[in-house]
């Protein structure tokens, strides 16, 4: 596998850091060098969260370079638009079709971008844009918090790493009592991507 720079973005509370932790363990178990770092604001909840995961034979910098990410994995639409410029030309954008309006939108001093605007912004970097209804799929499983494992499932279909390693690392990373529903979410995310191919 060539280097994979995976850029995960979303809102605090969506479980992005846990997902990128597990992705890091997967890469390590599969024998790659890996660095991962999160840029968190000061917020416990509700702030913008970004996780950089870099997988290769040898990784130096912990941060992905702007315009170099192979994959943008956005847990929320506005965050997809905000961080799209990290994608390399022709990189893959996986976007959870879910809106979480920030306070400025509620206060009426800012507008939430339309789906078309989000797409237009992402199209500046790539034509490979996959919207998935991850949050409603997770809701369908009975636990909206499984969105992070669902997005991890999406990522898994593009990395040449045995599915057993993914399952093993998820099993090690999550409490037993919520494992089943999370593994189901992982499978759903993986299936969401069956028809998507990296160029």
């Amino acid at each position: 596998m060539n280097k994979q720079d995976i850029f995960m973005v979303g809102v605090g509370g969506q479980g992005i850091v846990l997902a990128s932790d597990i992705l890091g363990q997967v890469a390590l178990t599969a024998g790659y060098d890996v660095k991962k770092t999160d840029t968190l604001g000061m917020a416990q909840r509700g702030g913008s969260v970004v996780s950089h995961v870099r997988i290769a034979q040898q990784v130096h910098a912990p941060l992905i370079q702007e315009g170099e990410a192979d994959m943008l994995v956005a847990f929320e639409k506005l965050e997809a638009a905000r961080w799209g410029y990290f994608l390399k030309p022709g990189g893959l954008a996986i976007v959870n079709n879910h809106a979480m309006p920030p306070l400025s939108v509620s206060l009426g001093v800012a507008c939430y971008p339309s789906d078309e605007e989000v797409k237009d912004i992402l199209k500046r970097c790539t034509d490979k844009i996959c919207f998935i209804n991850g949050t409603s799929q997770a809701k369908g499983l009975g636990d909206i918090r499984t969105i992070n494992m669902l997005m991890l499932g999406c990522i898994s279909s593009f990395l040449p790493i045995d599915i057993k390693i993914w399952q093993e690392c998820i099993t090690r990373g999550l409490p037993q009592k919520i494992l089943k529903v999370n593994l189901a979410a992982f499978d759903l995310g993986r299936k969401d991507m069956v028809d998507v191919h990296l160029g």
Binding site: V11, G41, M42, A43, G46, G47, S48, L78, E79, A81, R82, G84, Y85, P101, P102, L103, S104, V105, A110, C111, Y112, P113, I121
Partner: peptide, 11 residues
């Protein structure tokens, strides 16, 4: 870069 997107400051 996208302009005018609403920020999401820590709150």
């Amino acid at each position: 870069l996208p302009q005018g997107l609403p920020g999401r400051p820590p709150l």
